[in-house]
C-alpha cells in the first residue's frame, strides 16, 4: 500500500484515536449504560482494523508488537480466575462482588469484580477479531 494518500493517513490517525478513546469509555460505561466488554472490545478492534487498513501490516506490527493469540489467552485466564476468587470465601464459582469506595480525584467510585471479568471478555474479543483478520490477511499461499 505504498500509494496511499497522505490525507488518509492523517484522518485515520485522528479517527482511530477517537474510536479508541470512545471504546474505552464504552467498556467502563458497561455496568450502568450501554457498553461493556463485548462492545468495547469490538469497538477497539474496529479502530485497530482501520489502522491496519490504511497503513500497511508491517508498520502497524512495529508499533503494536502484540501476538493476539496471547491477548486471547490472557483474557481467558483473567475471566476464569476472577471467578475463582470468590471460591476461596466459600461462594459458588463466578460470584461477583462490588463495593463503593472513596477514591482520590474520582470521588465515590464503585469497584466490582465484574470489571476484571469484563476486561477478560474485552481482551478475548479484541484478540479474536484481530487474530482472525490478520491471519487471513497475512496468508500468502
Amino acid at each position: 500500500m505504498k500509494n496511499t494518500p497522505i490525507q488518509l493517513h492523517v484522518v485515520t490517525r485522528i479517527v482511530a484515536f477517537i474510536i479508541l478513546i470512545f471504546s474505552i469509555f464504552l467498556f467502563f460505561a458497561g455496568h450502568n449504560n450501554p457498553g461493556g466488554g463485548f462492545i468495547g472490545g469490538l469497538m477497539t478492534a474496529s479502530a485497530l482494523v482501520l489502522l491496519y487498513l490504511s497503513f500497511d501490516l508491517k508498520t502497524i506490527k512495529r508499533v503494536l508488537p502484540f501476538d493476539y493469540a496471547y491477548v486471547i489467552g490472557a483474557g481467558l485466564l483473567l475471566a476464569t480466575l476472577t471467578g475463582v476468587a470468590g471460591m476461596f470465601f466459600g461462594f459458588p464459582y463466578l460470584t461477583q462482588f462490588f463495593e463503593y469506595f472513596q477514591l482520590p480525584i474520582l470521588g465515590e467510585t464503585e469497584l466490582t469484580t465484574a470489571l476484571p471479568f469484563d476486561l477478560g471478555i474485552y481482551l478475548v474479543v479484541v484478540g479474536f477479531t484481530l487474530l482472525v483478520i490478520l491471519t487471513v490477511a497475512e496468508d500468502d499461499s
Binding site: G30, H31, N32, N33, P34, G35, G36, G37, F38, Y68, A69, I72, G73, G75, L76, A79, T80, G83, Y93, L94, Q96, F98, Y100, E110, T112, A114, F117, D118, G120, I121, V124, V125, G127, F128, L131, V132
Partner: peptide, 29 residues
C-alpha cells in the same frame, strides 16, 4: 451494583454462560 441490566445479566447473573462464550471465541481463533 449495575444499572445496565443486560450487562449485569451477562457478567454477573449468567457469568458462566459468558465465560464459556468467550471460550468458544478462543477455540474458533
Amino acid at each position: 451494583g449495575g444499572e445496565n441490566i443486560v450487562n449485569v445479566i451477562l457478567v454477573d447473573f449468567r457469568g458462566l454462560d459468558t465465560l464459556l462464550e468467550v471460550f468458544v471465541l478462543g477455540i474458533v481463533a
